[in-house]
Simulated assay, not measured.
Amino acid sequence: MTPLASPAVESGANRRGIIAMCTAMACFMTNDTLVKLVAADLPSGEIIAIRGGFATIMVFAWLVAAGHLNAIGKVTSPLVAARAGLEAVVAFLFITAIASIPIADITAIFLITPLLITALSGPLLKEQVGWRRWSAVAAGFLGMLLVVKPGGAGFVAGSATAMALASVVFCAVRDMVTRFIDPRIPTIVITLTTCVTVAAFGAAMIPFQSWVPPSPTHLGLLLAAATVVVVGNHAMILAFRGVEVSLVSPFRYSVMVWAIVSGITVFGEWPDATSWVGIALIVGAGLYTLHRERVRLRVRSSKVEAQATLP
């Protein structure tokens, strides 16, 4: 009976993972929408500090409720601290950029992060990256150029677009660092460290930017943003537990649907024809990269099974 039950269990886990991934993407896009609304009035450091403060309170309460208070000392881990610092830089660059860039465009730019990780995995992790995956990276890079339109009126050195691109690089490095964090450290501890560091980073930026007294509306929007970020992070973790990662991962691209809907309905922003082509290239390249990873995993599994059956 066990062999017959396993596929059903796996199917249920995969279904849960897909739902969790789509939920996480919806939460993250809701956060981006709320932050973009507030960014029209408040400076980025202030936004990061207030949202980070709300998120820290929520995550700390979650940590206590989950019984991980005894593991809080793990926040001193160098890799955990490094990841938190990188996340703070990503948050600052992204929130500063999103005030000036259409939400669908900046979301598309951020979707090149998995492709950049693929490109970095060769020289940094000594992983073998074949010509097919390099071709996908090149296609994604071309798509990014079509979205940001270097040389156009919307792109100048030091502009919001440049900051968005820089945030992608730091995001990729952050994810690379995450791979080396001790798996025994509870995820909620890593999340708490990140929230505290991001909030502190935002507070440190306030003296260098003008302080704008937040209205009750601003505070309400940032409280909602903090809530969906916490829920989104939890859903993202749930999406990858006990599932086929190569099956669930492509659903991260559902964020583009939310981004386009948000851009049109909330901000009245329609991607132009060139951006549509760029978005399609980025999403297609990402999906193909995930497909190739699934093929490589299948080949490796077949080799292991074949060796196990040898006398």
Rank of each mutant, 00 (worst) to 15 (best):
T2P: 04
P3C: 05
A5H: 11
S6W: 07
V9S: 10
S11G: 14
G12F: 03
G17P: 02
I18C: 09
M21E: 05
T23K: 07
C27W: 00
D32P: 03
V35D: 04
V38F: 08
P43A: 08
S44M: 09
A49H: 00
I50R: 03
R51V: 07
I57P: 02
I57A: 15
M58Q: 08
V59N: 06
V59K: 01
V59E: 09
W62E: 06
A65V: 10
A66F: 10
H68N: 14
H68R: 14
K74T: 11
T76D: 09
T76K: 14
V80A: 03
R83K: 09
R83P: 02
G85M: 02
A88F: 06
A88L: 01
V89D: 05
A91D: 01
I95L: 14
S100F: 13
I103N: 00
A104V: 07
I106C: 00
A108S: 11
I109N: 03
T113P: 02
I117S: 07
G122F: 10
V129C: 03
V129R: 03
G130V: 00
S135C: 10
V137H: 02
A139R: 00
L145E: 05
V147R: 04
G151L: 05
G152F: 06
A157F: 15
T161P: 01
A162M: 14
A172S: 13
D175V: 08
M176R: 06
P183E: 08
R184Y: 13
V189L: 05
T194A: 10
C195H: 09
T197R: 04
T197V: 13
V198E: 07
A199M: 13
A199W: 07
P207Q: 09
W211G: 10
V212P: 03
V212N: 11
S215F: 02
P216F: 12
T217L: 15
T217G: 13
H218Y: 01
G220L: 11
G220K: 07
L221Q: 10
L222C: 06
V228M: 04
V231R: 04
N233D: 11
N233P: 01
A235Q: 03
M236N: 13
A239E: 04
G242N: 09
S246H: 10
S249Q: 14
S249W: 04
R252P: 06
S254T: 15
S254C: 12
M256H: 02
V257K: 05
V266W: 11
G268D: 01
G268E: 03
G268V: 06
W270I: 15
P271F: 09
P271Y: 01
D272A: 05
S275L: 00
V277L: 15
A280E: 09
L281R: 00
L281H: 02
I282S: 05
I282E: 07
V283I: 14
G284Y: 05
G286T: 08
L290K: 00
H291T: 10
H291C: 04
E293M: 06
R296I: 11
R296N: 13
V299L: 14
S302N: 13
L310R: 14
L310H: 13
